[in-house]
């Protein structure tokens, strides 16, 4: 499939994963309604690539992220991370897995504990995994904050989430994901709550991190343009089904499924202005 010389080792393998939600039974409805969030979804992510999962809200893309992060259970199929099935991970193995997989959340404000300072927020993963002495921890925290573009790091140590701007909060959330030096990062609509000018800088930052730290990214978005900018390969998900996947260019220039075509058609058009590919 891949012609370019790209590392071909598989880091994440999602195989025939099925997930349903039960609607609460009410007085008027005898049987519980079952909603299929993911319908036998399969995908494969290679080490070092940026994989985009594109879909509308309610398409199941966030559910998939939650399953991969082992925040929820699923009914059927398997998810293998580094050839290890994550379904039955417990105790030590689960902790080791948590160290390797991190999340960049959608809403940076809601995902930072309002009662913890930025320093304490970043310290937490380190103390959970018992990494480093006190001094090395401080060093790791500084490095992560600076890598996320919060300079100088010490200025942010004693600040609390509500004292930061939206962009700074998202950078703090990224820094938290970086402290454990994960192999695999999931970014769940990392910019949907931010203004356009800020979100572009966050993209730039993510690309920089991806290149410098050789992290594999699963990038979840509703924005095809952002996916094209950021991803090597994408999969389009619609109502719990993956309708199309392939290299980004191929999917966008030669869409096979009707939904992908509709998605491309719905993108704003700017016939009156000139555009260039970003570098």
């Amino acid at each position: 499939m891949e012609t370019k010389s790209r590392p071909t080792e598989t880091i994440l393998n999602v195989d025939q994963v099925h997930k349903t939600y039960q609607d609460v039974r009410s007085l008027f409805r005898k049987s519980a309604l079952t909603i299929t969030a993911l319908n036998r979804v399969s995908l494969e992510i290679k080490r070092g690539e940026v994989f985009g999962l594109v879909g509308a809200s309610g398409s199941g893309k966030t559910t998939l992220a939650r399953l991969v992060l082992k925040l929820e259970e699923f009914e059927a199929g398997s998810i293998r991370f580094n050839e290890t099935e994550i379904r039955n991970l417990k105790g030590k193995d689960l902790k080791a897995f948590r160290r390797k997989v991190q999340l960049i959340p959608q809403d940076p404000y809601q995902s930072l504990n309002p009662y913890l300072s930025i320093h304490d927020t970043l310290l937490e993963p380190l103390s959970i995994h018992k990494i480093g002495s006190r001094d090395t921890r401080t060093k790791i925290i500084s490095q992560s904050l600076e890598a996320a573009g919060l300079n100088p790091a010490e200025d942010f140590f004693t600040r609390y989430p509500h004292q930061l701007s939206g962009g700074q909060r998202q950078r703090a959330a990224i820094a938290r994901a970086l402290v454990l030096k994960p192999e695999f990062m999931i970014a769940d609509e990392p910019t949907s709550m931010l203004d356009a000018s800020i979100s572009f800088n966050i993209f730039r930052l993510l690309i920089k991190i991806q290149k410098s730290q050789k992290v594999t990214f699963l990038f979840i978005t509703h924005d095809l343009a952002a996916a094209r900018f950021f991803c090597d390969r994408i999969a389009v998900i619609y109502q719990g089904d993956i309708v199309e996947s392939g290299t980004t260019e191929k999917v966008i220039q030669d869409p096979k499924s009707e939904y992908t075509r509709a998605l491309i058609r719905a993108q704003p058009k700017f016939s009156f202005a000139k555009t260039t590919r970003p570098t």
């Binding site: 939650r66 992060l69 925040l71 689960l94 902790k95 948590r98 160290r99 997989v101 991190q102 999340l103 959340p105 995902s111 930072l112 504990n113 937490e124 993963p125 959970i128 995994h129 959330a173 938290r176 454990l180």
Partner: peptide, 8 residues
């Protein structure tokens, strides 16, 4: 969720 992802 973030705390869980961190392994808490």
């Amino acid at each position: 969720d973030m705390a869980r992802v961190a392994g808490a």
